[in-house]
Amino acid sequence: MKSLKFITAVMVFAAAVSASAAPLLNGLALEQQFNKDRYIAAVYSDTLADSAGVILDENTTRRLEIRVVADSLSARRLRNQWMEAIAINNSGSSLSAQADNMVTFANLFSGRLKKGDQLRIDFDGASGASTVSLNGIQLGRIEDRKFFTTLLRSWVGPVPPSTEFREGLLAAGDVDSGLLGRYELLEPTDARVLELSEANEENSEEEEQAESGSRPETEKPKPSKPKVAANIPPPSLASVAKPKAPATQQPAPASKPEPAQPRPQPKPARKAAQEVEEEEDQPLTADVLLARQIYHSMLLRHTYDFLQYPQRALERNQEGSIRIRVTIDPAGRVRDVQTVQASRFNDLNRAAVSAIKSASPYPKVPPALAKNDYEFSVPITFRLPD
């Protein structure tokens, strides 16, 4: 009888350990800009898979993690890049439903991340909650089962940062040993953890004082629910991965005259590796976030109308991913074009830049988004049909 009880106890303990076990490392991917390493991204999951459909299962315990490689990284620029990727990998209805959660998530980011910092988003498959932490310090918690999948789709959806980035995350546990070694060595210093802990305590105290000393309970404002404009469909980028007709068959836009010089004004001097970044003063709200996402999808689709697969690249079976940062003035005229991430093939890189220059002028910048220049990034994937 005692043996039976012992075996039962062991089985219960093993089941408890299994249930609480951390998810497994599914894949790693290195994020680069201007040929400089920025961070290593990781996807963990209870179920190892090379399929995005399996990893996106909303009932599976998963984790996203970013470990910073660069000496310094703008948290706000990282946030903005993430918001853009979310906008082009999720439907309009999903963006509208998750707008408030996205604002909550985005407002957790501030200042600059430093080398060794570990940003984690843990999803509990049982409760459906996502916990955001930095170097082990909890920043926030979002109680919405679909929120985590909305984030993850920006990495493994139809338009990831690059095809290599997506493939690295969908490795089903078969990760590159060299990249894994780098990833495991990236840890924050004790001084950095203490710095963040003290800053987090100060923020918590300020929030408590603001909540306790301002308005009576009866005067709590009701948050407005943002809406997605009905006449703007969610971005669909599947056609970008397929080559278009040869150059002789591409129709020229009839309503648009031949663009003049792509840079009518002197090009601003670039800072070293674009490391000096301006922080935006505009507070992020659900309405502003949705307006940016809608406008960004318009800019991308406008660009893709001018995109053409180079004939020589077709003949040589060349494929690749390019990401370009574009700056336009309020009227939509292109002021600056910078290749953030290039492919291995010059023909593809030139075709991507050419499409952006030909697309000028873009739709005008909505006054609510920017009074001066507006910056956005364009991911372009050249992929031959199967």
Rank of each mutant, 00 (worst) to 15 (best):
M11R: 12
A14K: 05
A16C: 05
A21M: 10
L30K: 11
Q33K: 13
A41S: 07
D46E: 14
S51H: 04
A52D: 11
R62V: 11
R62Y: 08
R67S: 07
V68P: 05
V68M: 12
R76I: 08
R79M: 13
R79A: 10
N80L: 14
Q81M: 10
E84R: 11
A87Q: 08
N89I: 02
N89R: 12
S94A: 15
D100R: 15
L108P: 12
F109K: 06
G111S: 03
R120H: 07
D122P: 07
D124G: 04
G125E: 00
V132D: 08
L134T: 02
L134H: 02
L139E: 02
I142Y: 03
F148D: 06
L170W: 06
A171W: 15
G178L: 14
L179C: 11
R182P: 09
A191D: 14
V193M: 05
E198Y: 10
E198V: 03
E201W: 00
E201M: 04
E206H: 06
E208Y: 09
A210H: 09
S214D: 13
S214V: 03
T218N: 14
E219V: 13
A230Y: 15
P234I: 07
A241L: 09
A241D: 00
A241G: 05
K242A: 09
P246Y: 01
A247Q: 12
A247L: 12
Q249H: 04
Q249W: 01
P257Q: 03
P257C: 07
E258S: 12
A269M: 00
A272I: 00
A273Q: 13
E275P: 09
E275K: 12
V276E: 06
E279T: 07
L284I: 13
Y304G: 06
F306H: 11
L307Y: 03
Y309W: 05
Q311S: 05
S321P: 07
I322M: 04
V334F: 04
D336K: 00
Q338S: 01
Q341S: 00
Q341V: 00
R344F: 12
K364P: 08
K364V: 09
P367C: 09
S377R: 08
